[in-house]
């Protein structure tokens, strides 16, 4: 009985740790190393001018329909927030990463990712962000975030992620 309880507790702890990783890890672009802990290099989520705040509260990414680069209504809401944040925090630059799901040929997906990144950049510029603060890059299908082969993963991989930096801009 004791043994069984302990085993259950261990499994629970492990499950909680896993879900914390999946949801709470700070991310500076999907290629960057996750820095765990609210006081990491990305600052505190409670500090509205921190990268952590931008990534988690404003939202650093928008999603796209299959083979599309149209900014939909929910993406607009996220990007409106990004534009506002970028204008109140002018020391930051942004690199918009465009991605595709695996259901496409490699080079086409590279072009599709570029189209998505450009759509986000154009939208941010239309909302007042200076064009020279935003750069774009495409990863095509080279860097999936989720690795299963069905729509639940594909929908998360068809994305554009705004990665903040403090570089000199474009």
């Amino acid at each position: 009985m004791t043994m069984s309880l302990r085993a259950t507790a261990l499994i629970l702890t492990a499950a909680m740790a896993l879900s914390a990783c999946a949801q709470g890890g700070l991310r500076g672009g999907d290629d960057a190393i996750n820095l765990n802990g609210a006081q990491g290099a990305f600052g505190s989520v409670s500090d509205p001018s921190s990268i952590a705040y931008f990534n988690q509260i404003v939202g650093d990414r928008v999603l796209f329909a299959v083979d599309q680069s149209t900014i939909n209504a929910s993406a607009m809401a996220v990007l409106d927030g990004q534009a506002e944040w970028l204008m109140t925090n002018p020391e930051f630059t942004a690199l918009v990463e465009g991605h595709a799901d695996e259901q496409g040929t490699r080079e086409y997906n590279l072009a599709l990712g570029a189209r998505r990144a450009a759509a986000v950049r154009d939208y941010l510029v239309s909302r007042g962000v200076a064009p020279n603060r935003i750069n774009t890059i495409s990863f095509g299908k080279e860097r999936p975030l989720e690795i299963c082969s069905d729509e639940s993963c594909y929908s998360q991989n068809r994305r554009a992620v705004t990665v903040l930096g403090t570089g000199a801009g474009v």
Binding site: S69, A114, R115, A118, A119, R121, S138
Partner: peptide, 9 residues
């Protein structure tokens, strides 16, 4: 080769 400029290739 392909070149992308402003999202267009």
């Amino acid at each position: 080769f392909s070149m992308e400029q402003g999202g267009n290739t």
